[in-house]
């Protein structure tokens, strides 16, 4: 009893933190979402998602987030695999190189892309120098997706790399011993055993990509309107906090939904095999 009291006592600062910084703001948002500007109860802020403009933004957000996740996965898995298979002692340093950009300010990195992709930017200078037609991709959906892939890639690489590191080398050898070639070993052993990493990677990329608005602000130049941008504008420009909160709640529901779907995939495939 005494022990239990001590443990809960030690958890108190964290509980307080969660209460002040997570639960209270969430309740505020919920309060705003369910009231009109005059303070009366309404569901209009939630149903506002059905507005074609909002629906279009939400659909675009889902498309961009999905595409970002797929591209990240396609790039990250081979990278993580190569990293894992590197026969060098200083593997930690290579992994560190991948994490390093995460320590630099996120806005700066995106601004750098703005300069690289702009019409007179580095990319087009290089293209015209070698005689290729220049590209106008800044302020398009492609630029936004590119920025997001660049930004979120480490979040996909690291969990997959981690999951691969946890696979016992002898298990891979055992597969070869039993006659499996490289491809069979990869599909039947390596991928299933790194599934947890793949799923965390997908969640860690898809969720922030779905709610992102800074990348689309800087690389979309106001032309690519994601649901995050709509919400931001409701709060900052339109000063309609009620509508902003309502749309936030809807977005949150989508985030929770996508996470629970991923967790379900995780559980059902584990089916009591991995506890």
């Amino acid at each position: 009893m005494n022990n239990r009291f001590k443990t809960s006592f030690l958890a108190a600062p964290y509980a307080l933190w969660v209460l002040i910084c997570t639960i209270l703001p969430l309740l505020y948002i919920l309060g705003y979402a369910l009231t009109s500007s005059t303070g009366s109860f309404t569901l209009a802020n939630l149903t506002a998602i059905a507005d074609p403009v909002h629906l279009k933004s939400l659909w675009l957000s889902i498309k961009v987030a999905f595409l970002t996740t797929v591209i990240c996965l396609v790039i990250a898995y081979p990278v993580a695999l190569i990293l894992h298979n590197l026969k060098i002692t200083n593997k930690g340093f290579i992994v560190f190189m991948f994490i390093l950009p995460m320590w630099m300010n996120f806005m700066l990195r995106i601004l750098a892309w703005q300069i690289i992709l702009s019409n007179n930017g580095i990319l087009n200078s290089i293209l015209s120098a070698v005689g290729l037609p220049t590209l106008h991709i800044l302020y398009t959906k492609s630029a936004v997706t590119l920025g997001m892939v660049y930004d979120f890639l480490p979040y996909m690489i690291l969990p997959i790399y981690n999951a691969l590191s946890k696979i016992n080398d002898q298990v891979i050898e055992a597969a070869a011993d039993l006659g499996a070639n490289w491809l069979t070993t990869f599909t039947k052993i390596t991928i299933p055993l790194s599934k947890d990493g793949i799923i965390s990677g997908i969640i860690m990329v898809f969720v922030p990509a779905l709610s992102s608005f800074v990348v689309s602000n800087l690389l979309g130049g106001g032309k690519v309107l994601l649901i995050g941008n709509v919400i931001e504008q409701e709060f900052t420009l339109a000063r309609n906090w009620n509508l902003g909160s309502g749309l936030s709640i809807i977005l949150m529901i989508f985030v929770i939904l996508s996470m629970s779907i991923m967790n379900k995939v995780d559980d059902s495939e584990n089916g009591g095999m991995l506890v």
């Binding site: 016992n168 002898q170 298990v171 050898e173 055992a174 597969a175 070869a176 011993d177 039993l178 006659g179 499996a180 070639n181 052993i189 055993l193 095999m273 991995l274």
Partner: peptide, 16 residues
Amino acid sequence: NLRPINTVFQKYALFP
């Protein structure tokens, strides 16, 4: 994978 030899590994190495 092409050798007619099979191995019992020290740490079992079963597919979890």
